[in-house]
Design a protein around this nucleic acid. Structure first.
Lengths: 346, 346
DNA sequence: GTGAAAGCGCTAACAG
DNA sequence: CTGTTAGCGCTTTCAC
């Protein structure tokens, strides 16, 4: 073919990425493109012998379907987006793992986005996500921004909010009550004879909700001592746990029970306590939140609140797959609850 | 020219997702679609007043561009895929964070895939990724599977391998020498007077390479004691660290220095040592790998090997962005090195 | 069971 | 600076 400049009336040619296309495969197999397409997507509609020829052509060419083209044509991207506050925190890992796994099994791919705990970034991220036309969106937490809700609603994409409850979900919801969880921890600590409780908490919204629930239940139980609250910036770390305990103790030396908003924070508290020679649980009870993998293996083993991240991920995936299949889901709101796990640290 | 036109029935109509399209926006702004497109993508090519009209139309309609269509038309997906062994492990988080951040700044989105430490899944994942036609692929580790290499090469997508070095990279490479890193740890431990060294290691390939480097350097230094190696399945956990130390000690009570293949493993060793009343570092030196966020705040603080995950992510992103811009990169291989961080545990 | 035509929503190429 | 035209690679719709 001539590399000379295109003559004035030659039809314009565009170059794609130059990769093998379905047309190439079809030609090689001696069928029309649509037959090749069917051979790949709905093999039961194609004669066995044709099928074989197409498959052969595919493997000989190394053809990999262009999902952008397929998605554009069918309005089904086979992509699901999940938004987490940060991928650095291990808290949501279990959910992301099970989402990935479950979606993969159904032929979907997960696209992960970080909102970074701030509403403004979340809105920008949302547009980037909606632009890809995913078949579903999984949000960690409730979408509060009015703009975000509007956009999500307008997009018509199935949405699952998670890790929380609300009377006004955008669409579907899988979560649990943070207020109830905190109350359960208070009762546990109270049963252990702890009277001077304290809170060590990341400054995110769900943790704050637990704090309020904690204080309310303490009042209800007749614990009259003031409950000091130490806030550290999210994402929480072992370090902020150590520092948090140090400051808590400086302010209120009589504290004998701490509820931390994450297991990592609790591990920091355990570490600081060990460094100071403070006996856990004799002198100080420590309860974490999340029941991360390491919680059972700290020294002493960490009491914590178990959240079924795997269950959340599974259910969210199911919701979306159902919707994508065009079926309406019956129960759009699921409360998966929580579980207070009593171990050595309390 | 007298080709019989389509029979008199209604022309076939297809329905997309029903969302607002660029055409809608253009109509509302009273311009052609391509002008609207330029207003959004290359605003400097459009008159100020036109720009305003288009922007107004966009915000009034809540238009969000369909990236599948744009990507198909332009052969640029503005998507970069990254493959990590598992998102559960915190080891690669720093890299993923900085990748996300750097790519986001350049207008790209990251799509994360888990290979799950097994080659077969990796190949399947690869097809799913290539199908989306990302503008770049970031691999953690070296791609060894011949089939994978072939497909990657055939796809023509820029590839960055990371976290390792090889004389035969597929394309670009950002990493460091595991052998050298392990050797440096041996020298450190030797300088501290440790003579009975041991290895506690995840069973992944890069860790094994470090093990071999460790043993070789120990020999070279004249450490004649047999070096016991305890292997635990990847991903490593605090628990496997505790169990690992227990088994190591049962087998070789005289061990006085352990090099762990991850900080989490090392934290487990620290925990088990504390539980047994084994003084660290007096009786046992512990060195981790990765310098995760918590390493400086354990008790005692953890000596470890610092890998510049952020640097790896940054550089990988830059490689891909450069390539996407059509520029060839000069130095396709970058050795970012490592750093032995001496803290209290050794 | 297979195929022709049309179009998904956008942008590259060219032409004013 | 703006518009016309022709696709990108696939799947839907209709027809045999």
């Amino acid at each position: 073919m001539s590399e000379a400049p295109i003559p004035p009336h030659t039809p314009r040619r565009r170059r794609g990425a130059g990769a093998i296309t379905l047309g190439d495969v079809a030609r090689l197999a001696g069928v029309s493109p649509i037959t090749a397409s069917r051979a790949l997507n709905t093999p039961e509609q194609v004669a066995k012998e044709t099928l074989e020829r197409v498959r052969d052509a595919v493997s000989r060419t190394g053809y990999v379907p262009n999902r952008m083209a397929g998605g554009l044509a069918s309005s089904r991207s086979r992509l699901v987006a999940a938004v987490v506050p940060t991928i650095a925190g291990p808290v949501f890992m279990e959910m992301v793992q099970s989402l990935t796994h479950e979606l993969d099994a159904a032929g979907y791919q997960l696209m992960l986005g970080q909102s970074g705990y701030t509403a403004s970034r979340e809105d920008a991220l949302l547009d980037a996500i909606i632009g890809r036309r995913p078949d579903g969106i999984v949000l960690t937490g409730i979408m509060h921004s009015a703009e975000g809700r509007k956009r999500l609603l307008a997009s018509g994409i199935p949405v699952v909010e998670t890790w929380d409850l609300t009377p006004t979900p955008i669409d579907m919801l899988v979560g649990f009550s943070h207020t109830d969880a905190a109350a359960a921890v208070v009762r546990h600590l109270h049963a252990k004879g702890r009277t001077h409780l304290a809170l060590l908490s990341g400054d995110d919204e769900r943790a704050e909700r637990r704090n309020r629930g904690f204080i309310a239940e303490a009042r209800a139980l007749g614990l009259t001592a003031e409950i000091p609250v130490m806030r550290v910036p999210a994402p929480t770390t072992l370090r902020s746990g150590r520092q948090g305990l140090a400051q808590l103790l400086a302010r209120s030396p009589e504290v004998d029970g701490v509820f931390c908003s994450s297991d990592l924070l609790a591990l920091g508290v355990l570490t600081e306590a060990a460094a100071r020679g403070l006996a856990v649980p004799e002198r100080l009870s420590v309860v974490g939140f999340g029941d991360l993998a390491f919680a059972g293996d700290t020294h002493p083993a960490l009491s914590t609140v178990r959240i079924d991240g795997t269950g959340i991920g599974c259910q969210a995936a199911r919701f979306i797959v159902e919707r994508a299949a065009g079926r309406a889901v019956a129960d759009k709101v699921i409360d998966l609850g929580f579980q207070v796990i009593e171990r050595g640290s309390s």
